[in-house]
Design a protein around this nucleic acid. Structure first.
Length: 617
RNA sequence: UGGGGCGUGGCCAAGUGGAAAGGCAACGGGUUUUGGUCCCGUGAUACGUAGGUUCGAAUCCUGCCGCCCCAGCCA
């Protein structure tokens, strides 16, 4: 990809599509470039490390890195960690890994990181104090260890900026209790009341703020507030809190601080410190934009200000996106962890077998706009199938085995049949699959009494065993107790080796199979949606969202039979089990000789559709 | 009833005054040793609604309706 020690030149963007996606954000960026307001594009992806990244974050990652990539710019990964109570290093690690995985091979050359431990530098530009922290791009790292940016690395700079605001008379220390502040804020249609401490002298504010930092006051005793306008129609302009006191240790700064900046104060200035040009966030922050701009303008900043713009967050049917609720699923044991393959988390999707490329394709297809939206899960699944269809090797696996004895096939004889690995890609070659007298087929592929339009095996019917022979069912063996079919008897036509009849006769279906004597035993996990309703985030009043959990979201199958080529599969690798779906080797629970597969997604199933239509009529 | 947004086919989404892109889903057909893939075909006389401007409006103006966000010392 890139020369390890080449600092001079950027790697080429070789696979850039000719027609890049256009949306209102890219238009704005283009315009800013054209007007010379900026000379390079720098975006950022700023998650709070208080949970794992999910498909909604993927949209934001693809947007921010996509813009950086398209305009030969950069996208900084930044932990927005200004609230010590909720954040944890476990999350910063997972976030970092997930981002890298998602952008790998696509935008990794745009990922802005910084040397481990580096802090913003104080510089003086035309007599004005400035703080700046340069990013290091992967191709210029020269082997030095890098890490994400952290808002918490700017606490000192932020403190200095706060001091500046106080000196300018634009911020003050307020002694009101949280309840008082609440009451005095007024209502959307009613102006608020000014704090009793609003006109405190600058010197007193400076002293008090310093003592807040020193730890002289308990949590909640005082805050630093911006002095804006208590009667502003936009409530975020009614003297918002900039700093609060929290005697808590922070995952990144330890016990160095007991005052922590609020989002609105920290975010825009963090953007500024990193030289971000476009700060893209979700719609709910739109009402914060005036405050974002007020803060930047209130300070005497020598460099160009970042611009905040908003887009609509992603919603997907049958899934929840709230981090709080995802955390509950994990904590209450409804799933087996953040990376449970049923989770909409990036790590869950990865474990499920969704390729990063498919997720990116999905994010590209859903577009970016400001409209509330609910994208159908089917689109995501389509993207996954499309990608896997191209890349996944085909293989035969029987999930619910039904024994078939081919009566006229010699006992003890084994033939090696030639199977193609991927009909979409001849370069993936062929393999040999053993065939013998006793095989397994899918239970679902046999019906003693076939329903209408059923093309598969039933008494007297001839079908093809893929890559092997045409067989005709001659009878069944039933369990005398239950009446259940436990074995199918059949005869084969020796003239049809490979699956074609010399006389040109056709059969209606082709079945996958596995030779009983050669089969590999495996566990296969089938997944369905985690919820039974399209919009689990909006459960009716009084009900908890967990009540729409799908109790059949996981089905574990033991004793599945795989063709022998799957005896020792590589964890994480994906296969198409012919006629069934795409399955990937579980990266956690696989043991040598005991493979575990996750069903990534089924194949499209016309027969299932016919059946449900039949039962619906 | 304050402020900020948004309304184009089932779901996304282009469109920026001159004959409503595209994708997913659905349905029909063809090919097929995966009821997969692939290929072909079918849908808004219409862009929340009512007016207005214009030779001409989804695009401009006005009113109305609907939905979302904002009163954390969360982000």
């Amino acid at each position: 990809m890139e020369e390890p020690n080449a600092k001079s030149s950027r790697p080429e963007q070789d696979d850039r599509p000719t027609a890049e996606r256009q949306d209102f954000l890219r238009e704005l960026v283009q315009q800013d470039l054209a007007e010379g307001r900026i000379s390079e594009v720098v975006t950022r992806f700023p998650p709070e490390p208080n949970g794992y990244l999910h498909i909604g974050h993927a949209k934001s990652i693809c947007l921010n890195f996509g813009i950086a990539r398209q305009f030969s710019g950069r996208c900084n990964l930044r932990m927005d960690d200004t609230n010590p109570a909720k954040e944890d290093v476990e999350y910063v690690d997972s976030i970092t890994a997930d981002v890298k995985w998602l952008i790998a091979g696509w935008a990794d050359h745009c990922l802005g990181l910084k040397p481990v431990g580096s802090l913003p530098e104080k510089v003086n530009v035309d007599g004005r104090d400035d703080y700046f922290l340069a990013a290091v791009m992967p191709f210029e790292s020269q082997g030095q260890p890098l890490e994400p940016f952290y808002a918490s690395d700017y606490f000192e700079a932020l403190y200095q900026f706060a001091l500046q605001l106080i000196r300018k008379g634009k911020a003050y220390v307020c002694d009101h209790t949280p309840e008082e502040v609440d009451r005095m804020r007024g209502a959307p249609d009613r102006p608020g009341r000014e704090s009793l401490y609003r006109n405190r002298p600058v010197a007193e504010n400076l002293d008090l703020f310093r003592r807040m930092r020193e730890g002289e006051f308990p949590d909640g005793a005082r805050t630093l507030r911006a002095k804006i306008d208590m009667s502003a129609p936009n409530v975020w302009l009614r003297d918002p809190v900039l700093y609060r006191i929290r005697h808590a240790s922070h995952h990144h700064t330890g016990d160095r601080w007991c005052i922590y900046p609020m989002y609105d104060f920290a975010h825009g200035l963090s953007d500024y410190v990193e030289g971000i040009t476009h700060s893209i966030c979700t719609l709910e922050f739109e009402v914060h934009r005036p405050l974002y701009e007020w803060i930047l303008q209130a300070l005497d900043l020598p460099r160009v200000h970042p611009r905040q713009r908003e887009f609509a967050r992603l919603n997907v049917t049958y899934t929840i996106m709230s981090k709080r609720r995802l955390l509950r699923l994990v904590q209450e044991g409804h799933v087996r962890g953040w990376d449970d393959p049923r989770m909409p988390t990036i790590s869950g999707m990865r474990r499920r077998g969704y390729p990063a490329e498919a997720i990116r394709d999905f994010c590209d297809r859903i577009g970016v706009a400001k409209r509330e939206n609910m994208v159908q899960l089917e689109l995501l699944e389509h993207c996954v199938r499309e990608d896997l269809n191209r890349r996944a090797p085909r293989v035969m696996a029987v999930l619910r085995p039904l024994r078939v004895v081919i009566e006229n096939y010699p006992e003890g004889r084994v033939e090696e049949m030639t199977a193609v690995n991927n009909p979409e890609d001849a370069s993936m070659g062929t393999r040999r699959v053993p065939f013998s007298r006793v095989i397994y087929i899918e239970r679902d592929d046999f019906r003693e009494v076939p329903p209408p339009k059923y093309h598969r095996l039933s008494p007297g019917v001839e079908v093809r065993l893929r890559y092997a022979y045409l067989i005709t069912c001659t009878g069944v063996v039933k369990d005398p107790e239950t009446g259940e079919v436990v074995e199918v008897r059949a005869v084969y036509d020796p003239a049809t080796r490979g699956g074609d009849a010399p006389d040109g006769r056709k059969v209606k279906s082709t079945l996958h199979w596995v030779s009983a004597a050669h089969a590999v035993d495996a566990e296969v996990r089938l997944y369905d949606t985690l919820f039974t309703v399209k919009d689990p985030d909006s459960t009716p009043e009084g009900l908890d969202f967990t009540q729409s959990l799908n109790e059949r979201s996981l089905e574990v199958l033991q004793g599945c039979r795989l063709e022998p080529s799957l005896a020792a599969p590589v964890p994480g690798s994906c296969y198409q089990f012919e006629r069934l779906g795409y399955f990937c080797v579980d990266s956690e629970d696989c043991r040598p000789g005991a493979p575990v597969f996750n069903r990534t997604v089924t194949l499209k199933d016309t027969w299932a559709r016919i059946q449900s239509r039949q039962s619906g009529e």
